[in-house]
Amino acid sequence: MSENIERRRFLKCLGAGSLILAPLGCSSVKEEDSNSNRPHYAMVFDQNKCVGCGECKEACNKANNLPEGKSRLMMEQQSGGVEGQKCSHCGKTECDCERKYVRVSCQQCKNAPCVTVCPTGAAHRDPATGIVTMNADKCAGCKYCIAACPYDARYINKDTDVADNCDFCLNSKLAKGELPACVQGCRYDALIFGDVNDPNSYISRLLAVKDSVRIKSHFGTEPSLRYIPIVKQGV
């Protein structure tokens, strides 16, 4: 008899408990998604200011202890002559085209294909900062992330044999409270870094007044790198 009552009470508690806990469980997932207090780090490349000196690359190489000559970013020259080479804009060896450069590096996508495809979770989003970065101890070197990146912005680090990407110097500089090495190294203020979720940050105020574009936005990756292009096309 008493056993029966015990069972009934147990079942009652179970039913009531699940009624209370189930809605709680559902709502907690939502809360996490709309957490707007978390930072969203972004970078702006101002094409108007870049002169193509390449000091960003050297700073990157040094800060992240990369193999010689390698850095996590590249500069693509899109117009303007280099001695002995054809201008990639007009095709002539000697031309008056303005020199134009574009930063080529990880675009820090909000919807990052590398993170989705990585079989081991080595390419992941840092929980605290939301920055896409690498856990070198988990990477198996399958190169799936490199093939999946729509920007071809990832590579294999020859020293460590694992994939690598620009993570805004997450471990080498941001962890110490410093700006990314390339931003520090740029003497022309062509690179601006900051939290776009903070309305008072310099980058937020800059993006509020300047027109900026994202590269290959049709891929739906929502990159965090923004470019302020040169729009002047001659007189």
Binding site: M74, E76, V102, V104, A153, Y155, K216
Partner: peptide, 8 residues
């Protein structure tokens, strides 16, 4: 803006 270079 576009770029054609790649790091891989």
């Amino acid at each position: 803006l576009e770029f054609t270079m790649g790091l891989s």
